[in-house]
Write a protein that binds this DNA or RNA. Structure first.
Length: 993
RNA sequence: GCCCGGAUGGCGGAAUCGGCAGACGCGACGGACUCAAACUCCGUUGCCCGAAAGGGUGUGCGGGUUCAAGUCCCGCUCCGGGCACCA
């Protein structure tokens, strides 16, 4: 296949077939059409509707290469977006040439807020905008020559796709977590256990057995076990977006990650997913994955596992009250000198006395230090002080809370707790440094060994009692002693030897921290005062949103107000048409948010005849139900798209089991890849906790229920860097069009005006966007691909520089000219064998390029190809033609990086078939052997000369050769050679005395 | 505050195990071609001294280990990212 020569004669004296933008883009368009026509990148499945052609490839290994699911933005792509897509395409093409059946596809994460907000403003249905955006993005990506299997490019908004998203939701809803087996099981198993008495319900139902429960109580009990459940909990309500958000979607300063709107905490009934049941497996299985340590660490930190103990404290004058605290340092229990409850803690009201205890109002005789009463003074009663403090604490925004840093506030409640190990009476405070949502919402404060408690104790003049002997280094650095903490300037939080920790039954004194923890925990358990326990920062995943443009839940409610799952046969639940896409936000901050679907008229109610057990309200004949009006979050669709790529047309299952195993399980069992899953997953680091945690969770549920064969979805994760760009501001500080700025002598000018250079993301607001369309118009797609891969390592961020592109463009031009006569279009290769030097260089190049391709070091692979091409240029200049074996070798090696020009050259070199499945060149070992090498000679570690010796030269030979070198001889003459280091194949170093 | 990652020419970046720092590209400079320019091709290019030969110096800063350090160790600075009272 050859392109038609340009029809018009060239305007100037430019050779007719010079590889310029015009020729490049015409070659590219023709090859893109041919790849489509010939289904070049269709990866056959082992069976099913996409199984055609598998027989021919059945002996190949399977490789699944995946890009993170893009959102089809209305703004289109800039050159930063395709960086990862080009990287995966190069990798995928290399894999095909080294004998793999490669699955590489691209779909669209198309539900989401921007299309909906646009709809709210314009009345345009989000589906219309979404489809237009997808079409534009497809066009832009196609022009890059990405080898995607177009049959697999699903969009989350396709009804055929979200039908299966809903189906997965049903699986999760209809499951519970069996803690004993440590996996999810069908909820029917749980019901069977209750019915048979195998599982005792009584501890959960005020002592009633399953048989004694009425239908409603049975449903509530069973619902409380489901992995997807409706829970009432403080959630992140974002009035600016009119919806609730997951913890992961809220930034540290209490704003929405999208849109940067304020987020407030309020209790609401919402759908939750029991991801916390998987916390341990989500941490442990990280060990099986080829991910960077930093991403693994971010996931571990987010899950936030803490191993410690729960300890029960009594309350003075309240025999019936018990306060449970969580601590990771039970060994410091003897050092607890006060206790703190979160201001919202449920026991606060019960234990606060109406008056300050005893005679404390009289400062002269008070046993209560003045400081304890905090800011409100002595004339305020405890309930009023608590009320005022709560008001003060809840009025603070997250930002204010942070701004205050380590300044601790709080108020004494007037009540005392009793330390169970020594019966000491310790004051109970409320303070907002203790969080209601973590642990038990209460702590024992050990100021000697905890920074926060130390700061609070100093603020409130509370006792600081050391119970762990600090190490000498700490004591001397701080200039203090372990016996008296009065002049300590910080807490000792390290491990050490326990001291002053004994009662009549147990002594921790002399034990190191781990042993002291074990001893006290055992004692607490024996005494019934506490037990070992583990807590997590991870909360259950808030799964409902008050939006229109998302997946409807396959859930209806009956008259009890409890949810009922629709049977899978009734899927999909399609989004109804509505006229108003905006969530309604009431002026009343306490009012419930009103999702757009709650105004969807007829859709809201449905008459169904649902089969099932009577206790669950089913099987009673046709009945009217009300639909769930929330929709799923955008993460839902992106939690499993990689599974649908495998089998996108399957109407019977989300993915066929055999197909799933073929692609997903292939990476296992080679001794390195323990978990299986996608062979290579490339995307930005911004999904480190959100998408990657949710997807792993869903995958594990599907694994537990037998729908997928691997424990993890993504075996190898690669985080690509970002392409950033310079932006320029004028003297008013206003951004100016970056493409019009020029540099003269290190100063930047827009016209004659000096402008200021900044550096940041590419975007409309900085006026520094460069689009792929711009670049392929000016240079062609191969040049763009090559430049993006050449700029630096794929995982590093780097600045875009349009001026640097000419380097790679010149490379392609030179390659073209080495093979094709620019004037005549004739192939300019010779059939005579290449000279020895050229062959050796090519084989060294093959070796290096192969290894660089495998490690995705595309920048250095390209550098090696530059060198080979530059050498070939000199050969062509000398001989008038390129040796065929070199021309073909370099063409094949360039193919993964710049596939269009490579296909065109390959075709012109006389090969009718695409080179997509040609074997990648293999280095000839015999041509890699060298017999002599140049070795550096150092004197006192400084490079002074070089000698050429045989590769096999041993240390003595090497030293002799070095001594024979004229320059070296001169330098060591007369000096005492104290030592000679001669490393064969490396260097010689003479150390003079 | 804590935890990660990074710092190499004018710029983007190379450099297996500690063994010739600066591959490759851009830019700059010089030359060829051209009436001229662009394109293309050839050459030079870390910095300092020197006409040259050559010498000195050099991988954020300060120490150290070593025959030898961009690479290892200790102490900092700055930049990027994550977490942020998680008991």
């Amino acid at each position: 296949m050859t392109p038609n020569p340009p029809e018009k004669p060239p305007l100037d004296s430019k050779p007719r077939l010079r590889y310029d933008a015009q020729l490049a883009t015409s070659i590219e368009a023709e090859w893109q059409d041919r790849w489509d026509r010939e289904h070049t990148f269709w990866a056959p499945n082992p069976s099913g509707s996409l199984g055609d052609g598998f027989e021919a490839l059945k002996d190949r290994r399977s490789v699944y290469v995946l890009d993170m699911f893009p959102y089809p933005s209305g703004a289109g792509l800039h050159v930063g977006h395709p960086l990862g897509y080009i990287g995966t395409d190069v990798y995928a093409r290399f894999q095909r040439m080294t004998g793999a059946n490669v699955l590489h596809a691209m779909g669209y994460d198309a539900f989401g807020l921007p299309a909906e907000q646009y709809a709210v403003q314009t009345g345009q249905h989000p589906r219309v905008t979404t489809e237009a955006n997808i079409a534009n993005m497809r066009r832009q990506l196609r022009a890059l020559g990405l080898g995607h299997d177009s049959r697999r490019g699903v969009a989350t908004t396709d009804v055929d796709y979200y039908r299966w998203t809903q189906w997965i939701f049903l699986q999760i809803f209809n499951s519970y977590y069996d803690d004993a087996l440590d996996r999810a099981r069908p909820i029917t198993d749980l019901v069977a256990e209750f019915e048979s008495g195998e599982r005792d319900a009584r501890s959960l139902t005020d002592g009633l057995a399953w048989a004694d429960l009425d239908d409603l109580k049975r449903r509530i009990l069973v619902d409380s076990f489901r992995l997807a459940y409706v829970g009432e909990a403080p959630v992140n309500w974002c009035p600016g977006l009119g919806t609730v958000l997951a913890n992961e979607e809220v930034t540290a300063d209490g704003r929405s990650e999208r849109g940067n709107f304020p987020v407030i905490r309020r209790p609401l009934k919402q759908w939750m997913m029991r991801i916390t049941s998987y916390a341990d497996r989500l941490i442990d299985d990280l060990d099986l994955l080829d991910w960077t340590d930093s991403i693994k660490l971010m996931q571990r930190n987010w899950i936030g596992k803490s191993i410690g103990a729960e300890v029960t404290f009594g309350v003075e004058l309240h025999e019936s009250l018990e306060i449970k605290v969580f601590t990771t340092r039970p060994d410091t229990l003897f050092g607890a000198t006060y206790m703190v409850l979160a201001p919202e803690h449920e026991l606060v009201d019960a234990l606060v006395p109406s008056e300050w205890p005893g005679s404390q109002l009289d400062d002269a005789h008070s046993e209560i230090p003045l400081a304890w009463r905090g800011v409100f003074g002595a004339e305020v009663s405890p309930p009023e002080a608590v009320r005022r403090y709560r008001a003060f604490a809840s009025s603070k925004s997250e930002l204010e809370r942070q701004a205050e840093g380590t300044v601790k506030t709080g108020v004494f409640t007037g009540a005392f707790a009793v330390n169970p190990v020594n019966d000491e009476r310790i004051p109970i405070f409320i303070a907002d440094y203790v969080l209601a949502g973590y642990g038990t919402g209460a702590i024992m404060a050990v100021p000697a060994h905890d920074d926060r408690d130390f700061a609070f104790a100093r603020e409130f003049d509370l006792a600081i009692t050391p119970v762990v002997e600090p190490d000498e280094k700490w004591l001397s650095e701080n200039g203090v002693s372990s016996s008296d903490a009065s002049n300590w300037i910080e807490a000792f939080t390290g491990v050490g030897v326990a001291m002053a920790s004994a009662n009549s039954e147990i002594s921790l004194d002399g034990l190191d921290t781990p042993n002291a923890k074990a001893a006290i925990t055992a004692w607490l358990e024996a005494e019934g005062l506490g037990h070992a326990t583990t807590t997590y920062k991870l909360r259950d995943w808030l799964f409902s949103r008050q939006r229109y443009w998302g997946e409807p839940f396959p859930i209806v409610y009956d008259e009890t107000g409890l949810p009922i799952a629709l049977p899978a046969e009734q899927l999909p639940v399609e989004l109804p048409e509505v006229s108003d896409f905006a969530p309604r936000i009431s002026e009343d901050p306490e009012a419930l948010p009103e999702p757009p679907l709650s105004r969807a008229g007829d859709w809201l109610e449905v008459e169904l005849d649902l089969a099932g057990p009577a206790w669950a309200g089913l099987g009673g004949g046709p009945k009217r139900y009300r639909r769930e009006v929330n929709t799923m979050p955008q993460w839902a669709g992106s939690c499993w798209y990689y599974l649908r790529y495998l089998d996108p047309q399957n109407v019977d299952a989300l993915v066929d089991a055999g197909v799933e195993r073929y692609w997903m399980d292939s990476a296992r069992g080679d001794g390195v890849h323990a978990a299986g899953g996608v062979d290579l997953y490339v995307g930005g680091v911004e999904h480190a906790v959100l998408h990657l945690l949710y997807a792993r969770f869903w995958h594990k549920v599907l694994f537990d229920l037998g729908h997928v064969s691997t424990v993890e979805p993504f075996q190898r994760l690669f985080n690509q860097g970002y392409i950033q760009a310079y932006a320029f501001t004028d003297e008013r500080g206003v951004y100016v069009e970056a493409s019009e700025v020029v540099e003269r002598d290190g100063v930047w000018y827009l016209g004659d005006e000096v402008v200021n250079r900044e550096y940041g993301k590419m975007g409309k607001s900085l006026k520094n966007v460069v689009t792929p369309d711009d670049i392929y118009n000016d240079y062609g797609a191969d040049t763009l691909r090559l430049y993006e891969m050449f700029m630096g390592p794929l995982d590093a961020s780097r600045p875009w520089s349009t001026t640097d592109i000419v380097g790679v463009h010149r490379f392609l031009q030179r390659l073209w000219r080495n093979v094709i006569n620019e004037e005549t279009g004739e192939v300019n290769v010779s059939e005579t064998p290449a000279d020895d030097e050229s062959l050796r260089l090519m084989n060294r190049t093959i070796l290096a390029v192969r290894s660089d391709m495998e490690s995705m070091s595309f920048n250095t692979a390209i550098a090696r190809l530059f060198e080979l091409n530059n050498h070939l240029t000199t050969v062509v200049a000398a001989n008038g033609s390129a040796p065929r074996e070199i021309a073909e070798g370099i063409t094949l090696m360039v193919a993964p990086l710049a596939p269009h020009i490579a296909e065109e050259l390959w075709s012109r070199l006389g090969h009718p078939e695409t080179l997509t499945y040609e074997p990648f060149p293999v280095a000839d070992e015999t041509l890699l052997v060298v017999d002599s090498i140049e070795v550096p000679i150092q004197v006192n570690g400084k490079l002074r000369s070089r000698v050429t010796v045989s590769v096999s030269a041993d240390a003595a030979t090497l030293e002799a050769a070095a001594r024979a070198d004229e320059k070296v001889a001169e330098l060591i003459e007369g000096a005492t050679v104290r030592k000679v280091i001669a490393v064969p194949g490396r260097l010689v170093n003479f150390v003079l005395g």
